[in-house]
């Protein structure tokens, strides 16, 4: 489902070139649960952003679900992001002034769904992550674990083929983190492809496969 070939990413810092990714080739199959591990600065988040079409590689090719997405226009990238990919971030990244329900409706509204349908699907999605009784709460009225559940519900509501989670438990205590991981396990069992970035071994153990990144290269997989 994901095929990366010889991906590099170079940033320019002033006159100095910073080679973050130095040639990554990687295949992830549909329905897999993959963890990308590595120390800070290893390039794992950059790789994740490239997989999520939030960032573009300097060189290399990327095919998602058999279609090349390397040369897509910004508009088409936004379209793929909106339809095929769901994001979960370490910092939750919820919109401040929006209650949980509207938060989860938002991606559907951006897709052009009508309001009634969006609301119904958002309710289903929130119920699926165990927040049926918190739909009308604002982010600052929710606990960290609940916020991350809202973020997961928001990522799921579009029925994405791929869910990307960047340190999803990084801002949570270990108990709440465990609950979130259990939720991701459930989703994977239902067939959602999940790629998770982490630097914690016990989190990576939830995945079926772990890819270690070191200095911009795949170390072991």
């Amino acid at each position: 489902m994901i095929t990366l070939h010889a991906i590099t990413k170079t940033y320019l810092l002033g006159s100095q070139e910073l080679h973050v990714l130095k040639g990554i080739s990687l295949t992830i199959h549909s329905g897999e649960f993959v963890a990308i591990m590595g120390p800070s600065g290893s390039g794992k988040s950059t790789l994740m952003n490239i997989i999520g079409l939030l960032d573009t590689p300097t060189t290399g090719t990327y095919a998602l679900e058999g279609k090349s997405v390397s040369g897509l226009s910004e508009k088409d990238q936004a379209h793929v992001r909106s339809r095929r990919i769901g994001f979960v971030f370490q910092a939750f990244n919820l919109l401040q002034r929006m209650n949980a329900l509207h938060q989860v409706m938002q991606p559907l509204l951006y897709q052009g769904a009508n309001r009634q349908e969006a609301q119904k699907r958002a309710e289903d999605s929130l119920t699926a992550v165990g927040l049926a009784d918190r739909m009308h709460h604002l982010p600052n009225e929710l606990s960290g674990g609940q916020r991350q559940r809202v973020a997961i519900a928001r990522a799921l509501v579009t029925h994405p083929a791929l869910m990307l989670a960047d340190e999803p438990t990084g801002a949570l205590d270990s108990h709440t983190g465990g609950e979130i991981m259990a939720l991701l396990d459930q989703l994977n069992a239902r067939g959602v492809t999940i790629v998770i970035v982490t630097h914690e071994q016990h989190i990576a153990e939830h995945a079926k496969r772990t890819i270690h990144i070191l200095d911009g290269l795949i170390h072991t997989q």
């Binding site: 936004a78 992001r81 990244n93 990522a155």
Partner: peptide, 15 residues
Amino acid sequence: REIGIRKAIGARKRD
């Protein structure tokens, strides 16, 4: 940051 979040959840330029 809000704009970034919106783009990540599917907002296009014109949205």
